[in-house]
Simulated assay, not measured.
Amino acid sequence: MTTFYLVRHGKTELNIEERFQGGSIDAPLVEEGIFQAQQAGKYLSEIQFDLVAVSTQKRAVHTANYIVGENNFLHGATLKYFDGLREISFGEREGVKIDRSDEQTNYLRTNPALYNPSSFNGEELNDAVERAGAVLNQISDEHPDGTVLIVSHGALLIILMNYLLGKEKSKWREGGPLENTSISILERDSQTANYKLKSLNDISYQK
Rank of each mutant, 00 (worst) to 15 (best):
L186D: 04
A60G: 03
L108M: 12
G76D: 13
L6D: 02
V52L: 15
G91M: 03
I67Y: 14
R86W: 00
G122L: 00
R8G: 11
P177Y: 05
S152Y: 12
L29Q: 01
N194I: 03
V68C: 09
Q36A: 11
T110Y: 12
K198W: 03
E123T: 02
L51F: 06
K58L: 09
S89G: 15
V129P: 04
I150Y: 09
F35G: 00
F20C: 04
S199D: 10
L164D: 04
Q104M: 14
R19A: 12
L79Y: 15
T56L: 02
K42M: 11
K198D: 06
A53D: 03
S170D: 07
G122M: 01
G122I: 03
K196W: 04
M1H: 10
A40W: 04
L79G: 01
T3G: 04
R100Q: 09
I34F: 01
D99K: 01
S204V: 10
Y81P: 00
R173V: 13
H9P: 04
D102Q: 03
M161T: 12
P144Y: 13
G41I: 07
M1T: 13
A37V: 08
G76K: 12
Y163T: 06
S182A: 15
N201P: 00
F35H: 10
L14Q: 03
A60L: 06
E130F: 12
Q38T: 13
Q48N: 11
L125Q: 02
E31V: 09
F73E: 02
I139Q: 11
N180G: 09
S89Y: 12
N106T: 07
K167Y: 14
S101L: 12
G133K: 01
Q138A: 12
V148W: 07
L164G: 05
A128H: 04
N137W: 07
D189C: 10
P112I: 02
E18R: 15
F82E: 10
R131A: 09
I185K: 13
S182I: 11
Q48M: 09
I203Q: 08
G166Q: 03
S24H: 13
G133L: 08
D102P: 00
Y195K: 05
R19S: 03
K97I: 14
V68F: 14
K196C: 06
V52G: 12
K196R: 14
T63F: 11
A132K: 00
Q138D: 14
S118K: 13
F20H: 15
L74N: 11
F4R: 06
L85H: 08
T147P: 01
H143V: 01
G91Q: 04
I150A: 08
K207I: 06
Y107L: 02
V52W: 10
L79E: 11
I47E: 10
A40I: 02
V96M: 08
Q57P: 05
E17C: 06
D189P: 02
S55V: 10
S184H: 06
H153G: 13
E174V: 08
G41N: 07
N72M: 15
Y195W: 05
R100V: 14
H62R: 15
I183D: 01
Q104R: 05
N72L: 15
I88P: 00
L6P: 05
R19H: 11
